[in-house]
Design a protein around this nucleic acid. Structure first.
Lengths: 329, 329
DNA sequence: TATAGAAAAGAAAACGATTTCAAAGAGAAT
DNA sequence: ATTCTCTTTGAAATCGTTTTCTTTTCTATA
């Protein structure tokens, strides 16, 4: 039926071991033998069974990816970066959406372990302590991308979000503002915490109070923006830092609907950096997070671990910038 | 080191076969034995090795997905639908981005075969004849989602895009228009062909000529829209059917930049149906393609094939609608 | 009490590769 | 011609399951 390494061996009049050597580029094969085997492989159209290979070698050339939601522009940009690098290094990815659900994350992780993935990229929420231990016990390399884990236990790739927020807020304060709304989004708690920390520390440094009720949480979609806008209006907050692009745009639209002009009557800045920021009018000022690169660098880092290469810096901080566009003055 | 089925068997004082039976819910196990084995499994924290399982059973609970670009809103929406259903049926997906590159598609397909996937979801361009034969030979179930393959050789899920275009164009013609631009996008040739066919047939039925140079091809990104707009202006085309949301929005913006008012001076309708259509001003009229559902239904269909269930209709056509928003009169 | 038949359990052969270890072959040096 | 070394090859174990085929153990009936 399907042609196996045994068929090739028989046909080429060598042992399975030799075929295996040819397959894996082992140099200890006489050139003529190699050629003979290769010819047979071509002729029989033989393709090694990756599952059998995985069982024997304990390597699957597969990496598991945990992600909240692939249909989000933010995460899919990350994933594209990570997939492209995986492809370069001949790995495939198994992606699991978890919507930040801890038990879904746990299940996914155990699934990965059972499928013997060579490594894991984690873009999720908070890792459960027990699950963590199990991953460590299985000694599967794992890299955290853009989730801003405090713990230096794991390799990670991020930007310095606190610094980014510091810059943004200082800029607003320098222009005479003393308050701002912070609209959270559908991201991991820690990531949001880091953003918040950045905002807080800048207010503090300037001896200004950051009021708890400037934090607006619990919204995740563009459609909910009018609701958010009403809250902003009520609280008389005309500087808005939104973690989410789509929500930032929604707030702008809601303001316009209300007869306001952005940025004259309200300034909006987004912390995400998807294509959307260019696609609204006015265009949205934002923190330039290199999403694709975070994914790419994360996967590159992971390949190093998977191939047991030297890693000089396990916690990578990528550069960021603030792009001021038309939604701010 | 890692605990295997053998360890469980020894500890529970049964054979591996019995443990395997418990694992797979085989009824031929005495309840007390079952309990004993289960207890040991829990105690040892045993997790079956999916690779070994795959080798022995020839089932991997994995499906391969071929997709042009996961970072596209269009495709990631499809994928989310398909992933959710896969998850329900306990399958994981391996996703490969191919950018419509035929050789990348081929490689991905062979990779899937070597990894012994239980099924394949294809959202790509055109399948190569040889590759096709190999898939058939390997008898791996495959479902085409939203790629509008003419061939009824494979199961598929689509909307009737020709009918959709017919409706749209007839509507424009009824309002007295006699020409329209058709801006292609980053989708499969066949899909675009189907859209084009729909447009053509409606013009023909109305005894109107559809001019070849109304077709604008070769653009894929929002940023390129100003260029497209210039072409439109030159050709004096004020009705624009864009296959891509982002490009539709870009054209609207370019028109506005040029002092025109959409829809008064130019009407724009998009064939894609991503969240973007709501997020521009004016909002974009579009064909309501149920992307998530196409993915979900496609995966459901695939599970039927993978479990050898009865399939009554392998070529599913999902309902569509035309949503007229503010970019058309 | 014997016994047929069903239910439960075990032994061992797959599955299709890699990998270890030993053996054979080929030259080179003496 | 013999020995030694290095290269090339093969035999067989191994990876961790499932599955087939027996064998053993029950249960119910005669």
């Amino acid at each position: 039926m399907t042609v196996t390494i045994y068929d090739v061996a028989k046909e080429a009049k060598v042992s399975m071991a030799t075929v295996s050597r040819v397959l894996n580029g082992n140099p200890n094969v006489k050139p003529e033998t190699r050629k003979r085997v290769k010819d047979v492989i071509d002729r029989l159209n033989y393709r090694p069974n990756a599952i059998a290979r995985g069982l024997a070698s304990k390597r699957t050339t597969t990496v598991g990816v945990i992600i909240p939601d692939i249909s989000s522009l933010y995460y899919s940009a990350l994933v594209r970066g990570l997939d492209d690098v995986a492809e370069m290094y001949q790995y495939q990815t198994i992606i699991t959406n978890t919507d930040f659900n801890p038990s879904a994350e746990r299940d996914a992780l155990y699934n990965f372990m059972s499928k013997q993935v060579d490594g894991i990229i984690y873009l999720g929420g908070i890792l459960n302590e027990d699950t963590l231990n199990d991953i460590e016990k299985a000694s599967i390399p794992i890299v955290l991308c853009g989730t801003s884990e405090n713990d230096d236990k794991f390799a990670s790739v991020n930007i310095d979000v606190e610094a980014a927020m510091d810059t943004v807020i200082q800029n607003f304060i320098d222009k005479g503002h003393t308050k701002c709304a912070f609209v959270k989004g559908y991201y991991s708690q820690q990531l949001m915490q880091h953003f918040e920390n950045g905002i807080r520390r800048t207010f503090k440094r300037n001896n200004l109070e950051f009021k708890e009720d400037w934090i607006i949480d619990g919204f995740s979609k563009y459609d909910e923006a009018p609701e958010i806008y009403n809250i902003l209006k009520e609280k008389e907050l005309d500087i808005v830092i939104s973690m989410n692009d789509a929500i930032a745009i929604g707030i702008i639209h809601a303001a316009q609907e209300d007869g306001k002009v952005v940025p004259d009557d309200m300034e909006v800045l987004s912390c995400a950096n998807t294509r959307l920021v260019h696609m609204s009018r006015p265009t949205v000022s934002s923190v330039r997070t290199p999403l694709y690169d975070i994914g790419a660098v994360g996967m590159r880092l992971l390949t190093k671990y998977m191939k047991n290469e030297e890693v000089d810096e396990p916690n990578v901080i990528l550069p960021h910038a603030i792009d001021y566009r038309d939604s701010t003055k």
